[in-house]
Design a protein around this nucleic acid. Structure first.
Lengths: 201, 201
DNA sequence: CCTTTGTTTAACAATTTTGTCAAACAATAA
DNA sequence: TTATTGTTTGACAAAATTGTTAAACAAAGG
């Protein structure tokens, strides 16, 4: 008897990931995905039962993976500034690969707050580690390394400066008549700038 | 003969605005909108012909209005810092009313770059005024008021710090177990923080 | 009153998208 | 070879959504 293939299943999932998270086409139909993957649309149902299940799986996997990487950085035993630098590097890598992940999560959480509940509670010790990081931020403020503010706002500032430019790319392309490559360069330049800005230097 | 009503037409448009731009339900159907407005769905076609035309009108009006207000601030004859403070105030007002406007524009521009083309070219002298503002930023950097960087990145920083927290609200609500009111307070606190941060103070 | 004009409605048609099924197909173990 | 298991396909059904039409309705002028 033949062994399970997985090849097509993976192809469909990867294609869906690309379309949803990288290209930001949240309205893509099952047909769009099947076409992009070069397979019959029925296979999408064969492997994932429904569009919604495929959609959810893509987001769940991407989010789990992202959280995994970020928590690894936040939980590491490095000096604060280096930790932040790593955080920026890691998050930038993820954003380059999947610029629409957080925005889509935000949009869907907004429409059905219960649905992705588990994604935020499933990681044991997740909230704990987050609280520890906020405390670490607090200590750095007392040391004077970074400007005093609510630690949460430090956190939000950091992620705003990283994430938003990736989503707003089409707007700034038009607004400032930039090319795709020009904008990419800008994003790379920002990487250093974000750390400087955060450390008020 | 009866005069044109406009009452129902305005009601539908306002409701659509609320659903799309304030509640962030970009997948809302014509039925959803009609129900929310308390009118028969056919009226939506009677007044706007199609869902797409209504959708486009809502975004066009909102964007035109936003741009109008921002350009007024940018074009004013105030000292730089005060200009920025006004900008933050105005943009915060708009974001409070329509937190999803820019994100949706970005998403739709991304899917069909031609479609909203005119929104960026229609304002005569728009690009001119934008370039002038970038030059003004440049001058402030030379004066040492703000940190040296590409003026565009100063611009993007400012808008990232303002806009992203509004869209990412559902994520941070879960992540930090905040209430809606608690998050609103945070947003208000940020308002001052953004200006301080931008002016490196 | 009747006519005209604009509004509202329900019923219907068209389209788009999703989901199902049975049959064809391919690979491999027995 | 044949039986078995998993894969792929096209045809079809179902559902959801959008768009149209004709008729009912309401207001106001003649």
């Amino acid at each position: 008897m033949p062994v399970k293939d997985c090849k097509t299943e993976q192809l469909i999932k990867d294609t869906a990931k690309r379309i949803f998270l990288s290209e930001g086409k949240m309205l893509a139909t099952t047909q769009d995905i099947a076409d992009a993957a070069g397979v019959n649309r029925t296979l999408l149902h064969y492997y994932f039962r429904s569009r919604e299940l495929l959609f959810d799986m893509v987001f769940k996997e991407a989010l789990t993976n992202l959280r995994e990487r970020l928590h690894q950085v936040l939980g590491s035993e490095l000096p604060f500034k280096q930790k932040i630098e790593n955080l920026v590097s890691v998050f930038y890598e993820e954003l380059t690969e999947a610029p629409y992940l957080e925005t889509f999560i935000a949009l869907y959480l907004n429409q059905d707050p219960e649905k992705y509940e588990e994604l935020f509670t499933s990681l044991p010790g997740g909230k704990e580690r987050m609280k520890n990081f906020l405390k670490e931020i607090q200590r750095e403020m007392e040391k004077g390394t970074i400007t005093e503010m609510k630690p949460i706002n430090f956190f939000i500032n950091l992620f705003s400066l990283m994430a938003y430019p990736f989503v707003a790319r089409p707007i700034y392309l038009k607004m400032f008549d930039l090319t795709d490559n020009g904008y990419n360069k800008l994003l790379v330049e920002r990487k250093k700038g974000i750390v400087s800005m955060i450390f008020n230097k």
